[in-house]
Amino acid sequence: MPKTYLSKVTVLEDGKPVTLKDGKTIHYLEVNKPLTYKGITFYQSSYQPYPDFIVTVTNTATGISETLIIPAGKQIKWQEGGAEFGILNKESFGESVQRIKIWFTDRQGDPSTFWLNNAQEAIIKRPSAEYRMSVKQLYATGLQVTKDPGVWFVYTGCGMMLLGLFVAFFMSHRKIYAFVHEEDGQTKVLFTGSAHKNKVGFEKIFTGLVDGFRKKID
């Protein structure tokens, strides 16, 4: 089970990286952490493994370093670093490569061959120099882009819907009448009331009011 789906994203404006709100130029885009820039939001939505690999090699003696994208099974000549290398074999889990078998030579002595975990770095001691090398499978990331300036209208609508449900269920028009009149020299008060819904609840309130009135008089 993957722990996370992550894309490192840089926004370019006029060819220059933009400093984002958090003060960095690289944003780590994850499933629940989209990136919003000038009203446009980028979401991590899918990914696709490729059969190619990103190889970074460094000649520690000269300090020359290079990053290349290479397919498996092809011999790469790296003139500046004075070496040749290639990917002999790979172990995959589905389409995700777990381990890679590397072939590496500086044309002095026997070539080195070894297994390396995906995205791990190896130090290769050769007669001419020491090399550092890391190999990572190439992935494409699928981003979903939305421009949705109306999102707050939608959220407000959701809130109003819940409020509306509350009003519809728990509030009602209630009418209470008190008719004061004289009958045989006595003052009589007649109470009537109506509610257009939740009649059971209204009955309780109404009875409570009338009882309270009766107590006051007594």
Binding site: V31, N32, P34, T41, Y43, Q144, T146, V154, Y155, C158
Partner: peptide
């Protein structure tokens, strides 16, 4: 729905 919008943009 709000969560889906925050996570996936829909």
């Amino acid at each position: 729905a709000i969560w889906a919008n925050e996570a996936w943009g829909t």
